[in-house]
């Protein structure tokens, strides 16, 4: 039907009922929509409750796997993921906010730490690294966590592309000497990759700074009392 055929008088008389109908429709639809919202939220909540525990363990296992690559389980007797110590922002780590280092314990004594380090001068921006340093100041290992380096060139810092980053293990602040802490092209001891100098240069410099940081902050890092336990449950976790 078309409105213009209804006489004006009728239209005004009907306006109240039209208004009513609109209201009922709005209320009905809102309720409907609300009901569906409740249903869908319920569905998500149920899934969340059912999966939450599993997700927690997965996240921790993933984090732990990266740490374990640097410090295998036999080097420590605590749960690495749960033992962290807070670090103040530092120029040496290129960190602008507080960060957290993982601490490995062996018989109550700190045996190694894993520092989060940023190499700000990669070819395409910052490279996030994890640098594992043993109690004696030698490197346990270095891993690149996230980066945007060019595929095929700078991404050789990934362990699945190249073994390059494994070559840090065993090195320390004096081994090689300060001059040696650069890529071969700059007269240092570290290989660059073919076709890329910037990325390895940035990583080598960042690792060197991390070692310097370790030396100046040894007291704090090696004190077991600075560790905050971040256990998600009261009981010791079984999955480690």
């Amino acid at each position: 039907m078309s409105d213009d055929q209804i006489p004006l008088k009728d239209a005004t008389q009907n306006s109240a009922s039209v208004k009513n109908a609109v209201f009922t429709s709005i209320i009905r639809n809102s309720f409907g929509l609300g009901l569906f919202a409740v249903f869908t939220v319920g569905l998500i909540s149920i899934t969340w409750i059912l999966t939450q525990e599993k997700i927690q363990t997965q996240v921790r296992a993933y984090e732990a796997r990266a740490l374990m690559e640097i410090l295998p389980q036999k080097t420590h007797d605590n749960v690495l993921v749960d033992s962290k110590t807070t670090l103040e922002p530092s120029r040496l780590l290129s960190s602008q906010t507080t960060t957290e280092a993982y601490v490995a314990l062996n018989n109550g004594e700190v045996s190694a730490v894993i520092l989060p380090v940023i190499a700000p001068d990669g070819y395409n921006g910052r490279i996030d690294l994890l640098v594992g340093i043993k109690r004696d100041g030698s490197l346990a290992g270095v891993r690149a966590v996230t980066h945007k380096e060019t595929p095929g060139l700078g991404d050789k810092i990934n362990t699945n592309v190249s073994d390059w980053i494994l070559s840090f293990a065993g090195k320390s602040l004096n081994q090689p000497t300060a001059e040696g802490w650069s890529v071969k092209k700059d007269g240092g001891d570290f290989d660059q990759f073919t076709g890329a100098t910037i990325t390895p240069r940035a990583v080598v410099a960042a690792v060197h700074r991390a070692l310097t940081y370790f030396e100046t902050h040894q007291k704090h890092l090696l004190n077991p009392r600075n560790i905050q336990q971040h256990s998600i449950s009261e009981e010791p976790s079984h999955d480690q």
Binding site: L33, I44, T47, W48, T51, I55, Q58, V59, Y62
Partner: peptide
């Protein structure tokens, strides 16, 4: 809106499941 809500909730569920089983 109802369709979108349904689709969004299924996607969220799948996301949670993938997080739990294929992290």
């Amino acid at each position: 809106p109802v369709f979108v809500m349904i689709i969004a909730s299924f996607t969220t569920c799948i996301e949670l499941l993938m997080q739990a089983y294929t992290y």
